[in-house]
Design a protein around this nucleic acid. Structure first.
Length: 590
DNA sequence: AGCCCACGGGG
DNA sequence: GTGTACGTGGGCT
């Protein structure tokens, strides 16, 4: 028997593999302490997939389920939108058994409904174990020595017993940004025939380099023999820099797919994972995402679309917005002429290429702290969270909260259900008073919706027909009623977020360390964003907690509140000139 | 008005 | 991978 060891690490990513027909969860991390340069892959065989079954008849259902060779059947009581019901928790052998069996189970005459059947296994693990990516974890077990496939120093570790989540601040991670150039005399380069001509790197540790098949007088440029060599340098650099995060701009859709196609043509292996695995492409809706095991690939483009409100999201536009300065730019249709020029224009192209990689690093430095905080709050991997719409972030946060509260998660709506759902009516808009106004003040209501949800207890589990003004809040115009007690699921969750935010803001004012202040500011900002997008779950048609009555009631209270506030403002000498959902503008005329 | 399709980013 | 998920604006009918 080997002695039990403990390892502490920052949880970067998670997945599972199958060994002897059994699912093995893999936690990818960066070790903390004396061996902080080492990666760890911690393996947990003990977790099993499960679903909930809502039976018509419990005993009959148990008999039916036994026929299906499931691992375990337990009777459990769970709250379903405020109502306690008896469910059967059905444990299965392998995650893939869930899609295989759920329809069969659903079709049993003893079964009303199958629940929580579409929660990916690794997400289930994070939720049930109380683990948060981008936070520290302590595991016990033993080091496995057969790590033949690992490229860098990677510790393979077999977990014995439950992993322990630890309280920790934002980790400092190594981030490597990259950008590729390829060109075509007319239009976008075609991966079938147009080679990659340069690859640029920039890290948050000062590393800067451009590899190219042409030489330069710049010392940041390293010339290589041919494109095959260029791609090998790409792989080598990622291995030697050994980053926790790899960032690019539109790299899910352009850079990585292009590299993949060229590498396939030239026979270059893209074994970029910390476990030695090849880069993989995952279908995520209408776009693909490039996955590198154990390193988090963050494409900053989708994050920026959600983070900033702009007309366009080119790298140049985003850079200007965040840095307040123009970035060196060569229009796409001029890259070819620069490349064949071989003179000053080629030198300019090298500069531009490196500049793009550096810009990605800078944008990342600006954006990643917020994404990482959101990851720590939502509790799903940064890879996923950075590609989620805000509504999805809210949904996964609520799924975790539902687990903590002992609530069963609503099922995703079917396509037919979605098309039958009504979209939300907007907020109040007052047409602007035309003219040039002076002494303008803005009354900000952006946090209006979260506070309405809390103060009026607007939640799918509190809406009712059966009560009066004494024990219910009644929404103006629409007339929907919400029980004053008990506190609903969503109001309770938002309440906790806002209380946490107040706590952090207080710590912020008390802190004298500017760095600490900055970190706390990012934290409270992440909480604010989450709280403010929370109301969206009620009005977005494909969400689990969709409830149009809640959405309509919130906007009705909002309109009511804005109008009343505008009347009040008039009493104090303000003249409202324009209002939208988030607030109103007024001039002051004493 | 309602349907279908293309687009975003990247070079 | 307990997969397959956007929102919108323009042109056309």
């Amino acid at each position: 028997m080997k002695p039990m060891e403990s390892k502490k690490f920052v949880l970067l990513d998670i997945d599972y593999i199958t060994e002897n027909d059994e699912a093995v969860v893999r936690l990818f991390g960066r070790l903390i302490g004396e061996d902080s340069n080492q990666s760890i892959i911690a393996l947990d065989k003990s977790f099993k997939p499960y679903i909930y079954v809502h039976p018509h008849d419990v005993e009959e259902c148990i008999t039916d389920l036994r026929e299906l060779k499931v691992l375990k059947i337990e009777k459990v009581r769970k709250k379903d939108i405020g109502v306690i019901k008896e469910f059967l928790k059905v444990t299965l052998k392998h995650p893939q058994d869930v899609p295989k069996l759920r329809e069969k189970i659903w079709n049993l005459s003893s079964v009303k409904e199958v629940r929580e059947h579409d929660i990916p296994f690794y997400r289930r693990y994070l939720i049930d174990k109380g683990l948060f990516p981008m936070s520290e974890v302590l595991v016990h077990g033993e080091v496995v020595h057969s790590s033949s496939s690992s490229v860098n120093e990677t510790c393979l570790f077999k977990i014995d017993g439950p992993p322990e989540p630890l309280e920790s601040g934002l980790p400092e991670l190594k981030v490597l940004s990259f950008d590729i150039e390829a060109c075509n005399p007319k239009g976008m380069p075609q991966e079938k025939k147009d080679p990659i001509i340069m690859i640029s790197f920039s890290s948050n540790h000062g590393f800067r380099k451009v590899f190219s098949t042409k030489s330069s007088s710049f010392d940041f440029v390293e010339v290589v023999e041919d494109e095959e060599e260029l791609l090998k340098k790409f792989v080598e650099t990622i291995k030697s820099e050994n980053p926790d995060l790899i960032t690019g701009y539109n790299s899910d859709v352009f850079d990585f797919p292009y590299i993949r196609d060229r590498a396939a043509q030239l026979g270059v292996s893209l074994d970029l994972g910390v476990d030695g695995s090849q880069i993989k492409f995952m279908r995520r809706g209408f776009a693909n995402a490039a996955v590198i095991k154990g390193r988090i690939h963050v494409d900053l483009y989708p994050s920026m679309r959600r983070y900033l409100q702009l007309d366009r999201y080119t790298l140049e536009r985003v850079y200007l917005e965040l840095m307040g300065e123009d970035k060196k730019d060569i229009p796409g249709d001029e890259i070819h002429s620069c490349w064949v020029d071989d003179g000053d224009k080629l030198e300019e192209l090298f500069e531009y290429s490196l500049d793009d990689a550096v810009a990605v690093t800078k944008i990342g430095e600006n954006m990643l702290p917020l994404s990482m905080e959101l990851t720590r709050i939502v509790g799903q991997p940064l890879f996923d969270v950075s590609r989620m719409a805000t509504g999805q972030q809210v949904e996964w946060y609520l799924i975790r909260k539902a687990y903590e509260y002992g609530d069963i998660v609503p099922n995703k709506p079917s396509n037919s259900k979605i098309s039958g759902r009504k979209r939300i009516a907007g907020g109040y808009v007052k047409d602007p008073v035309k003219g040039l106004h002076e002494n303008i003040v803005y009354f900000d209501f952006r946090s209006l919706y979260p506070s309405i949800i809390i103060s009026k207890n607007v939640s799918p589990d509190t809406i009712t027909d059966d009560c009066g003004e004494d024990d219910c809040y009644i929404a103006p115009e629409v007339g929907y009623k919400f029980k004053k007690e008990p506190v609903g699921f969503v109001p309770s969750v938002i309440g906790n977020i806002l209380r946490e935010r107040v706590k952090i803001k207080k710590m912020m004012t008390e802190s004298t360390d500017p760095h600490q202040k900055h970190i706390l500011n990012v934290q409270q900002e992440a909480l604010k964003r989450l709280a403010n997008s929370m109301y969206g779950v009620y009005g977005f048609i494909r969400f689990r907690w969709y409830r149009i009555e809640c959405a309509d009631s919130i906007t009705a209270w909002g309109r009511d509140f804005i109008k009343k506030t505008m009347d009040k403002a008039r009493e104090f000498g303000f003249e409202p000139i324009y209002a939208d959902t988030d607030g109103f503008y007024a001039t002051y005329k004493p």
